[in-house]
Simulated scan of single mutants.
Amino acid sequence: MERSRFCHLTVDSVEKEAYVWHEADWKFSDEWHSHHMGQLIFVEKGVQYLHTPDRTYLLPTHHCAWIPPGLLHKTSAPVSPVYLRCIFLSKTADHQFFKELNIFHTPRVLREMILFTEQWSRLEEEDSLEFDFLKALIGILPLTFDTSLPLVLPVPRNPRIASMIDYLTENVANDIKIPDVAANFNLSARTMERLFKQDIGITLAGYIKLYKIIKAVELLSVSGENVKSVAIKVGYDSVSTFSNTFFNVLGVRPQEMIVA
């Protein structure tokens, strides 16, 4: 049985204040869990989804996530392998950054510090150099963090809305028309919009746009495709429209997300 599948069990048994775990082929499961430590994740290769009871977050290649201690979550990945570099921390600074789940660009200084910690991966004994280095990393984190990327989708509570979202995701490559979606579920567009926003807090059009951008980030992170092919796969006929929408949502152009 793969040890990495049960990282929460292993980590919670470690008595150190900080624990490093780098895994070149992370094994995911659908188990809900939490850690008594906060978790910094850097995706070296691949792409990961983080699920909480009411949100789904995308963590792209070469980006970081901070998961605060005690937060119930599970993880998944659309393709494998996924190379994760994780640092678990039981003591952090009294800063708002450490109290929320954040997905963010990885500044170069932070990336190099994370890569440097590979020498301590799965080391369960105390090491003074590791302790001092990770203490410095804790201080660096809030200083290098700029803003959390809005790569997050609300999770529906209403099964009927969940069915609508399944329909939307299955038709992501199409130019989705709201009246057509409503007709598919025997609803008026106005009623469907009201039910949708009531359940997940955003409009149907807003959800469609956000889902298309998140799916595009996933494809750009793992497929090696160009911007044009990804634009088509998420339902955009115009590359410029796709690029502008992408920029308006994330603040970067899609070509900046392509992994070499």
Rank of each mutant, 00 (worst) to 15 (best):
E130H: 06
I138S: 00
P142M: 08
F145V: 04
Y167F: 10
I140C: 05
T147Y: 11
K135N: 05
L137R: 02
L137V: 15
P159D: 02
S148H: 07
D166E: 14
L129D: 15
I138K: 05
I165W: 02
L134M: 11
F131L: 07
V152A: 01
L137Q: 05
P159V: 08
S163I: 03
P150Y: 15
N171T: 04
V172M: 11
N171C: 08
A173F: 01
S128I: 05
T147R: 10
G139V: 10
V152H: 03
L129A: 09
P142C: 14
D166P: 00
L149R: 02
T169Q: 10
P154V: 11
T169C: 10
F131A: 15
L129K: 11
P142A: 13
L134S: 11
A162M: 03
R157G: 13
R157T: 08
T147N: 09
I140L: 15
P154H: 05
L141S: 04
K135Y: 01
L168G: 00
P156W: 06
L168S: 03
M164S: 05
F131C: 06
I161W: 03
E130P: 00
R157D: 14
Y167P: 00
P150L: 13
L168D: 13
D132N: 07
A136W: 01
I140A: 14
V152K: 08
M164C: 08
D146T: 08
L153C: 08
Y167R: 11
E170I: 06
L137P: 03
P154M: 07
D132I: 10
L143T: 02
S163D: 10
I138M: 04
T169M: 15
F131T: 15
N158I: 09
L151M: 15
L151S: 07
L129S: 11
D132L: 13
I165M: 01
L141Y: 00
T144H: 05
I161L: 11
D132K: 10
A136E: 12
F131H: 14
V172N: 00
R157A: 13
T144E: 14
N158K: 06
F133D: 15
L168N: 01
E170P: 03
L141I: 12
Y167K: 04
S163H: 12
T147D: 14
A173D: 10
L141C: 13
L143C: 11
L129W: 07
F133Q: 07
N174M: 14
Y167I: 00
L149P: 04
R157N: 12
I161C: 04
R160I: 10
N171G: 03
P142H: 13
L168R: 02
L149S: 08
E170F: 15
R157L: 09
T144R: 09
A162T: 05
N174G: 04
P150R: 09
L168Q: 05
P142D: 14
D132T: 12
I138F: 02
R160C: 02
A136L: 13
Y167Q: 05
L137C: 08
S163F: 09
D132Y: 01
F131V: 13
G139Q: 04
M164P: 01
F131G: 06
F133K: 06
M164L: 11
I161Q: 02
Y167N: 07
V152Q: 07
V155P: 07
L134T: 08
